[in-house]
Amino acid sequence: MRPRFVLFTLLALVLFAGFASLGVWQVERLRWKTDLIARVDARIHAEPVPAPGPADWPGLTAESAEYRRVVLRGHFLNGDEVQIYTPTDWGPGYWVLVPLARDDGTVVMVNRGLVPEDRRDPATRPAPEGEQTVIGLLRMPEDRGWLFSRANNPEARQWYRRDIASITQTLGLKDAAPYFVDQELGDPAAWPRGGQTVVSFRNAHLSYALTWFGLAAFVAFAWGLVLRGERRR
């Protein structure tokens, strides 16, 4: 065999193995994503369970707890309201996060929902007083920013993501939970507007797997053509 054909065969083997490995990896990711979607769908439609207490906090992970439907009771610390900018269906808006103090002395940040720009001032909307019962989805903190996201400015009490540790430390809250709760929709005409959690997972792993396997098949086909030509020579 000519040296050129040997080099082409080695290159084809490397490419085929690489593309096939990527295809297998995408199949594994597809299985993981399918399980994740099924698990989250079951959680958001389940009956609410008590929100995790301090004993459970160290073991909480996104995989084990996020989007779990929970219930908690306490009174809101309305003076410590935090607002986080986000685009909304009503134009520029804000997530309204308020600490909820529980009877056991712990505090949980509750995302009460969205408000448009003209409802940003707390004076434009009534604040809940007395003991409250909150039902919502447990969420893990957004402590990492995206590539072009603005940096939080705790000194000015300006946050651009729901970084719970930064918020509770700045507010001086003790025994604060490491998660927050997206409150469900209550009065559909009231502000803040709860129930705005977007539960959506992009799942394109099947198309990616087919692409990688297709490239592997193309390499094998091309090598077969070259082999046939080599035999004719």
Results as ranks from 00 to 15, higher is better:
residue 146 W to Q: 15
residue 205 H to M: 00
residue 205 H to N: 09
residue 86 T to I: 15
residue 52 P to I: 06
residue 117 E to W: 11
residue 145 G to W: 07
residue 194 G to I: 07
residue 59 G to E: 07
residue 57 W to N: 10
residue 135 I to Y: 04
residue 156 A to V: 01
residue 85 Y to C: 09
residue 224 G to F: 12
residue 160 Y to S: 14
residue 55 A to E: 15
residue 80 D to L: 15
residue 46 A to Q: 11
residue 216 A to C: 03
residue 113 G to F: 01
residue 197 T to L: 11
residue 20 A to F: 03
residue 71 V to F: 14
residue 4 R to K: 14
residue 142 E to Y: 11
residue 184 E to F: 13
residue 225 L to R: 15
residue 4 R to H: 15
residue 23 G to F: 02
residue 123 A to F: 03
residue 22 L to D: 00
residue 218 F to I: 13
residue 155 E to W: 04
residue 86 T to P: 08
residue 134 V to A: 03
residue 3 P to A: 12
residue 8 F to V: 11
residue 135 I to W: 04
residue 193 R to M: 12
residue 195 G to L: 02
residue 131 E to N: 10
residue 86 T to H: 13
residue 93 G to I: 08
residue 83 Q to C: 05
residue 18 G to Y: 00
residue 214 G to K: 07
residue 35 D to E: 15
residue 130 G to R: 00
residue 174 K to W: 08
residue 41 D to C: 03
residue 158 Q to M: 08
residue 121 D to M: 13
residue 101 A to H: 10
residue 128 P to G: 05
residue 22 L to E: 00
residue 229 G to K: 12
residue 66 E to G: 09
residue 86 T to L: 12
residue 11 L to I: 13
residue 190 A to G: 07
residue 177 A to M: 07
residue 12 A to C: 11
residue 123 A to E: 11
residue 8 F to K: 11
residue 206 L to W: 12
residue 64 S to N: 15
residue 230 E to Y: 09
residue 70 V to R: 04
residue 97 L to E: 02
residue 88 T to I: 06
residue 64 S to L: 09
residue 151 A to F: 10
residue 83 Q to R: 10
residue 203 N to V: 06
residue 220 A to F: 01
residue 71 V to D: 10
residue 22 L to N: 00
residue 8 F to I: 11
residue 37 I to A: 09
residue 107 V to I: 09
residue 105 G to H: 07
residue 160 Y to K: 12
residue 187 D to E: 06
residue 117 E to C: 05
residue 135 I to E: 15
residue 101 A to E: 12
residue 102 R to H: 04
residue 76 F to R: 08
residue 94 Y to T: 04
residue 23 G to E: 06
residue 167 I to G: 06
residue 183 Q to V: 06
residue 170 T to F: 07
residue 143 D to R: 13
residue 221 F to M: 12
residue 1 M to G: 15
residue 158 Q to W: 00
residue 27 V to K: 00
residue 110 V to N: 07
residue 166 S to K: 01
residue 78 N to F: 09
residue 71 V to P: 08
residue 228 R to L: 11
residue 15 L to P: 07
residue 122 P to Y: 05
residue 68 R to T: 15
residue 205 H to C: 02
residue 105 G to W: 01
